[in-house]
Nucleic acid binder design. Structure first.
Length: 441
DNA sequence: TCTGGGGTCCTAGGACCC
DNA sequence: TCTGGGGTCCTAGGACCC
């Protein structure tokens, strides 16, 4: 970790940048009276957790993912704000625009992190260290946000380096970080081997505990075991990456065009739900959120999954894949409700979720005609499929009919009643004069 | 101290096809 | 009559990331 060394793009091709305490920092920017006070963003209730903690709060030991009641105990004057994700997305968009302006090949992770491949701008002859400093300066000046940058040979070292660039807490005092860190080739392996396994990407609490039980607490320990031994405990995929990481190798590329694969809505209730009926009452809301998100993105989903988490924190899921995609609230709700029928409600339910996946672009969604008659088989799941299929057919027919009417009479011939009202047109009057008569109004 | 909500990826088993 | 191997898709659960 030597800052005097100024690496070339070939020595430090990968950059990782991470905004400091992102959500909390945005809240302070929008409300300067919070500055200097202990501020966090998260759920304030009994079941809430901290999503982002300002650096002022970190000297109390407060960290993201910590239960809010614990954080409150560590710092009773802690201000926990509920979070305004639309606002964070705006800031994130501006952050990405600055990154895009300086280095075209980049991959966002969540709202506040980005990997970039600097080889894409080799011809600019700008050094990685200079670029990193300029990036931080622009984010500070144009957004008012602080950030840390890591530079390295691959994603593994770039990410570990950016963590090293951050402020730290020493004896309950906040200490400035270096801001930019480059891990040079001469020291990277020595440095890596002294790190605990938990600091590696893909090693969370469960895997770290398991590794420690096997006597593998530090990265250097991983070099003593072979891949097949690791595979017998952790599966072949994780074993392969762990062996690679221990040797300082990371084959992951910076992938600029990753596409979303699922959309979901989960909610944990302050008071747990009891029994099928009480849980089912909440399905409609989840289905509506998911359906709107699908339509907004122009996609339909063939797979619907319901998730239930019980009070003992165990979860079960049920999913069903249809031959056609769904993007309407009622269709998704019907499938979810039918799936819920095979879930046990012996225990109280603290979380309910609906997820949609196996996307099909709306214009490519094939709605197959069928001779099935909805609601006649007595099988809840089969009936739900049949009726949502019927609804898709109806919806497609309606869309076609609307298109036909508009082609004949103009775009404004057909609209939602709410849109007409917004236009200042009296809906009732218009209906009365409609070319199609009041019944079809 | 007792664990959110947005996601991604992996594993393992079973059904089915050739 | 009892059996192969490869490939794809689906389901359920678990771990991880920010």
């Amino acid at each position: 970790l030597s800052s005097p060394i100024d690496p070339s793009v070939d020595e430090a091709p990968i950059l990782h940048i991470d905004l400091d305490a992102f959500f909390a920092s945005v809240e302070i920017l929008d409300n300067p009276s919070l500055r200097g006070k202990p501020v966090a963003v998260g759920g304030a209730g009994e079941r809430g957790v901290i999503a982002s903690a300002s650096y002022e709060t970190r000297r109390y030991g407060i960290r993201s993912a910590m239960p809010s009641v614990v954080a409150k105990r560590l710092c009773p004057e802690l201000i926990i704000l509920p979070g305004r994700f639309d606002r964070y997305e705006q800031y994130s968009g501006r952050f990405h625009a600055i990154v895009a302006d300086m280095t075209p090949v980049f991959e966002p992770l969540g709202l506040d992190e980005v990997f970039a491949d600097l080889r894409s701008l080799r011809r600019l002859e700008r050094r990685p260290l200079a670029l990193a400093s300029e990036l931080r300066a622009r984010i500070r000046d144009e957004l008012g946000l602080r950030s840390g940058v890591g530079l390295g040979r691959n994603k593994l070292f770039a990410k570990l380096a950016s963590k090293k660039s951050k402020p730290t807490v020493v004896n309950s005092q906040l200490v400035e970080g270096p801001g930019v860190v480059y891990v040079d080739a001469a020291t990277e392996q020595r440095w890596l081997e002294e790190l605990p396994v938990r600091s590696l990407w893909g090693v969370g609490p469960a895997t770290a505990a398991k590794l420690e039980r096997l006597g593998l607490s530090y990265v250097r320990d991983l070099r003593k075991v072979d891949e097949s031994t690791l595979a017998s405990h952790f599966g072949s995929a994780l074993a392969r990456v762990l062996v690679g990481y221990a040797a300082g190798e990371d084959a992951r590329e910076v992938e600029p065009a990753r596409t979303q694969k699922s959309i979901g809505c989960d909610q944990t209730y302050l008071q747990s739900l009891r029994g099928f009926d009480e849980v089912a009452e909440h399905l409609r809301h989840h289905a509506g959120v998911v359906a709107r998100a699908l339509r907004e993105s122009g996609r339909t989903a063939r797979t619907i999954t319901v998730v239930v988490r019980y009070d003992d924190l165990t979860s079960v899921s049920r999913s069903q894949t249809l031959p056609f995609g769904l993007d309407d609230e009622i269709g998704i709700c019907d499938i979810a409700s039918a799936l819920l029928a095979s879930v046990s409600f012996d225990q109280a339910v603290r979380l309910l979720g609906i997820h949609a996946s196996s996307f099909v672009a709306r214009e490519e969604n094939q709605v197959q005609l069928s001779f099935d008659v909805a609601g006649t088989t007595g099988d809840r799941r089969a009936d739900a499929v049949a009726s949502s299929r019927q609804r898709q057919v109806d919806a497609a027919a309606l869309r076609d009919a609307i298109d036909e009417v508009r082609a004949k009479f103009g775009t404004r011939a057909v609209a939602n009643a709410s849109e007409l009202a917004e236009d200042g047109i009296d809906v009732a009057t218009r209906r009365g004069r409609s070319a199609f008569g009041p019944d079809q109004g």
